[in-house]
């Protein structure tokens, strides 16, 4: 993939009001026909309609996007100049885990990164928690990061809540590698880039955003970035969850899809819904992140492979 395609990729990725699935279907069809994204934008709208099954509204949106190609060129130049990477879904550097976990329905057509791209190829874990975490949850997060470090797994984290802060502090403490997923555009993370500068230039941190580069934080983007954290992680640990927060719904969604989720078993005095999650299919783990002995034979088997 040449840089000259990037403006076209951004035009596709940021066409408003079109589902990711529709965009990814276009990419798949181009791939199958051995065509590039540039070819797509040079096609007549009748071909867009016929071969790519775009409806009238979508056609108009893509016509507008085409007009903005020179504008995107300016943006791409600026981002590359500042050392950001722009990775289309067809790039060999794009995270295979993300592609596999989110599939064509949800995998973002373009991701923006800064740092060591190789980290995305490693096995990974993510630790999730609600806004109201207690000390047990924080200790749990620290323990899980320590285990991940010992087992050469990288840690995927957000930057939004107390669990994320604990995770990132533990990452630094155990000299672990991590992926930081942003709830905002990559060009608005200056404070974080300053904070993680040495980790980034030494190859220990990769920062990822899937949003329009200048987007500032919003609750909606924070929710969307959670999905990316799930998508980038090979294993998911829940430190703390209750039935009202975003973590709960995402975990339930993943459990329904049959994904293995490890949930810290909480003691009866804790005000969270961890044990309900376990009852709904989450794998119980203790404060050290080890599968709980009471969990039975099947879990003993899992314990052997947990940090492979």
């Amino acid at each position: 993939m040449m840089n000259e395609e990037l403006a076209y990729w951004l035009a596709l990725a940021h066409v408003p009001n079109i589902k990711i699935k529709t965009k990814n279907e276009i990419i798949v069809r181009l791939f199958e026909r051995n065509k590039t994204i540039i070819d797509f934008f040079q096609l007549d709208t009748s071909i867009w309609e016929k071969d790519f099954e775009l409806n009238k509204t979508e056609l108009e949106l893509f016509i507008d996007a085409k007009k903005e190609l020179p504008n995107y060129a300016f943006m791409v130049e600026d981002l590359l100049e500042q050392g950001y990477n722009i990775l289309p879904i067809t790039s060999s550097d794009y995270s295979p885990t993300l592609k596999k976990n989110l599939g064509r329905t949800y995998a973002p057509p373009v991701i923006y990164t800064k740092g060591n791209l190789q980290i995305m190829k490693e096995k990974s874990i993510a630790i999730l928690g609600s806004q109201k975490v207690n000390n047990n949850s924080l200790q749990f997060a620290d323990n899980v990061v320590k285990n991940a470090s010992a087992n050469h797994k990288i840690v995927v984290s957000g930057v939004a809540n107390r669990i994320d802060k604990q995770v990132l502090d533990s990452v630094l403490k155990y000299k672990e590698q991590s992926i930081i997923v942003l709830p905002q555009g990559i060009a608005t993370f200056q404070t974080g880039f300053k904070k993680h500068y040495k980790q980034i230039i030494s190859g220990d941190v990769l920062v990822i955003s899937t949003f329009y580069p200048k987007s500032t934080w919003s609750a909606q983007l924070a929710m969307q970035s959670n999905a990316i954290i799930y998508g980038l992680a090979s294993e998911i640990y829940v430190a703390d969850s209750n039935e009202e927060d975003g973590t709960w719904s995402k975990v339930m969604d993943n459990l329904r899809k049959g994904k293995t989720i490890y949930v810290r078993e909480s003691n009866p005095k804790e005000k969270n819904a961890n044990n309900i999650l376990i009852s709904k299919g989450g794998k119980a783990v203790d404060i050290f992140g080890k599968l709980n002995n009471t969990a039975g034979k099947e879990d003993d088997e899992s314990q052997k492979t947990l940090f492979d």
């Binding site: 840089n3 000259e4 040079q42 130049e77």
Partner: peptide, 8 residues
Amino acid sequence: NLVKLLPQ
């Protein structure tokens, strides 16, 4: 760099 990125 910009010119290389412009639409063809």
